[in-house]
């Protein structure tokens, strides 16, 4: 084969260019730690990585949402736990008030404590969350759900619930929106007594203030019913919190899986990259050396 002088130069330069380009690519991969520098390096993996990243971002958001839901439920549960304690105290006081040795003054003293407990319970029913939103007013977060004094209730009126039955929900997984509230009406009104816990309490106070013990048995039943109803709501909250906890574990597992998938898709295998780098380096050196030797050969050197 006849070889022209420029072929020697062109071929040498072209092969060195190719080696340098490969070297640069490996160098960029090593510097960034990423196998895919641009989508064209592996289009399918690049597109897949974007989708996995979105899934992972959504998962992170769900984890944040789970924490919000957990804290909202925790707050509401805490409030209702206090309500349970109040009703337990009311229960004790009612039983105590039935004691035959008690005088009218004693019963009035109990009524005074019951009035205070009424205020506490009302405070709980009107409690607000961290954002200043009423917790037990359904969708109407800025509407105070309950208002009414003991005396107004004694006078005959039933308390009106100003909220609604709306349940606030938070998206905690792709398929689950968890309720983070319950309506005040469900907690404090619809308790099987046909009247609100406030009304029952007010009636009890009125009776004790009048030193009338005839309604105490009914009062105890009503207080028990109201307390059981709150326990029912708390149990529902508790089971949702359990669910959130197990969802949290699931998310942790998933998040590890996503991270693994992402790493498999786009991260560089350093061992392979460094061995490739050494190989390419050797090839380039060999190309350079052979080129410099071949290009020096010339017959003109021997013409004298």
């Amino acid at each position: 084969m006849r070889v022209s002088t420029s072929m020697i130069f062109d071929a040498g330069v072209s092969s060195m260019n190719k080696q340098s380009a490969d070297l640069l690519h490996i160098q960029q991969q090593i510097a960034s730690g990423r196998r895919i520098l641009r989508p064209s390096d592996d289009a399918v993996a690049a597109a897949r990585a974007l989708e996995v990243t979105q899934s992972s971002d959504i998962l992170t958001q769900f984890t944040t949402n789970q924490k919000s839901a957990m804290s909202a439920l925790g707050l509401a549960e805490g409030q209702l736990a206090s309500a349970t304690e109040i009703l337990q105290r009311v229960h004790e006081l009612t039983i105590q008030a039935g004691g035959p040795a008690l005088t009218a003054v004693n019963r009035q003293a109990i009524a005074v404590e019951l009035r205070a407990l009424y205020g506490n319970l009302m405070g709980i029913a009107n409690s607000a969350d961290g954002q200043g939103q009423f917790q037990f007013s359904g969708y109407q977060g800025s509407t105070k759900p309950f208002s009414g004094t003991v005396d107004a209730l004694i006078a005959g009126a039933e308390i009106t619930y100003a909220g609604d039955d709306g349940l606030r929900k938070i998206q905690v997984s792709a398929a689950r929106q968890i309720e983070i509230s319950d309506s005040g009406s469900d907690i404090f009104v619809r308790n099987g007594n046909g009247e609100s816990v406030f009304k029952s309490l007010a009636t009890l106070i009125a009776e004790l203030e009048a030193n009338d013990t005839s309604g105490l048995t009914t009062a105890i039943t009503k207080i028990t019913n109201a307390g059981d109803n709150i326990l029912r709501v708390r149990a529902a909250f508790g089971s949702r919190m359990n669910e959130l906890e197990s969802l949290g574990y699931l998310n942790q597992d998933l998040s590890v899986q996503y991270a693994q998938t992402l790493s498999d898709l786009q991260d560089l295998d350093y061992a392979k990259a460094i061995s490739d780098l050494t190989l390419k380096q050797n090839q380039l050196q060999a190309a350079q050396e052979s080129f410099s030797k071949i290009s020096q050969l010339s017959l003109f050197d021997y013409l004298r």
């Binding site: 006849r2 022209s4 002088t5 072929m7 062109d10 071929a11 010339s298 017959l299 013409l303």
Partner: peptide, 24 residues
């Protein structure tokens, strides 16, 4: 392109060693 150029240059390209010989 490189192949086509090389095939063409095999025929038409200048080889300096060959030219040195021709000079002699």
């Amino acid at each position: 392109l490189e192949q086509a150029q090389s095939t063409r240059d095999q025929l038409s390209g200048v080889n300096l060693d060959e030219e040195a010989a021709n000079l002699l």
